[in-house]
Design a protein around this nucleic acid. Sequence first.
DNA 1: GTCTATATTAGGATAGAC
DNA 2: GTCTATCCTAATATAGAC
Lengths: 214, 214
Amino acid sequence: MKTRERILHTSQLLFNEEGEPNVTTVDISNEMEISPGNLYYHFKGKEAIIEALFARFEVTLSDILRAPLEKELSVEDSWFYLYVVFEEIYNFRFFYQNLTNLLHRYDSINRKYKRLMELKTRTAHALLSEVANHGILSIEDEELNQLCESITLLLTYWLTYCDLKGQQLGPPAAIHQGVFQIVHLVAPYLSDEYGHIYRECKALYQAATAELGH
Amino acid sequence: MKTRERILHTSQLLFNEEGEPNVTTVDISNEMEISPGNLYYHFKGKEAIIEALFARFEVTLSDILRAPLEKELSVEDSWFYLYVVFEEIYNFRFFYQNLTNLLHRYDSINRKYKRLMELKTRTAHALLSEVANHGILSIEDEELNQLCESITLLLTYWLTYCDLKGQQLGPPAAIHQGVFQIVHLVAPYLSDEYGHIYRECKALYQAATAELGH
DNA sequence: GTCTATATTAGGATAGAC
DNA sequence: GTCTATCCTAATATAGAC
């Protein structure tokens, strides 16, 4: 792996583990066993590293979020889809653990992030309207909007919130719970004849929870 | 006001406005028009100030959260009660905007905060079970637990999330929306004969939104 | 209690040799 | 591309006069 790439890789790792504010350029170069001078040859500084990492995150996450806007998903796929979104957020959790501050410091990231956030809501809206059109969900327009907002908030902060609770959940368990938490937001709107979908989810959830063990 | 008190007051103000990491001891003393030396006479440093502010926050918020555990609230009071909780969180929003980091830095705060968070969930649980016992809400135990978790998350992050969206909502509007967002989480579980409660809330919400302008 | 002046440190950043 | 050595700055913190 080229040095530039290794810097990004190591930074992402350390940021996620220690929290971005607690990682210095020297920490990064120590971890990589290169000199700080070398790091500065490849990047103007920590800011540039963060911007590069965010650029990557933006590309992959917005691709993920746009997919269901173009091609319809089945109900089962929608459910699996949530895992994919959470997974990607998990990979850049350092970013979410420090959102307010980062967006305050970097105006460029701020603008891009806002678009991502809107895209999250838009995707949730598209997925749910579709399910509603199939008669699986029965929900009014205004309730749908509020629901999508809650889903976006939950997607944004669930993993951070799990961290806060500090019940040493492994990442798969935390993600798994997050998915189910979202399912729970949607479940009350399932049409009567589709209540079984929720019950199946629940069974799956409990099985998987048992498997992830403790 | 004594100097010690003014330091706490000014710090809280600046932290909320600029974000705690962006405020230095010198900023605080400048704002107060005292010397940095003087500030250090009263507090060992920024850490001590933050700890003192958190101690206050803990006392007032845990009092608020414990109130409904002792004395039953009417449905209308529960609704108003949410405003009180949000208001208190708003007063210490600097804390919430930097949660992960602060809890990572101060172990003492970490422990106390976890208790607060559990208390939030516990209070939500108590309020909702009561309403459920009156037959107003119809909800299973497991759904209730998940709902309370979502409410805690929303309480914790709603104001931060509004900030992120950066649609220049004034604080009253943001709080107002937060309250309604929570109402929306609960609404689907209202028993049929109590659907009117939600419709009344909605009418109130729309009236108030109009009043708050935008 | 408050000030001025100064010390300490850590993090970010560069210059110049190899 | 990489290293060593060094600099700059901002933030924290203290000493000692008033």
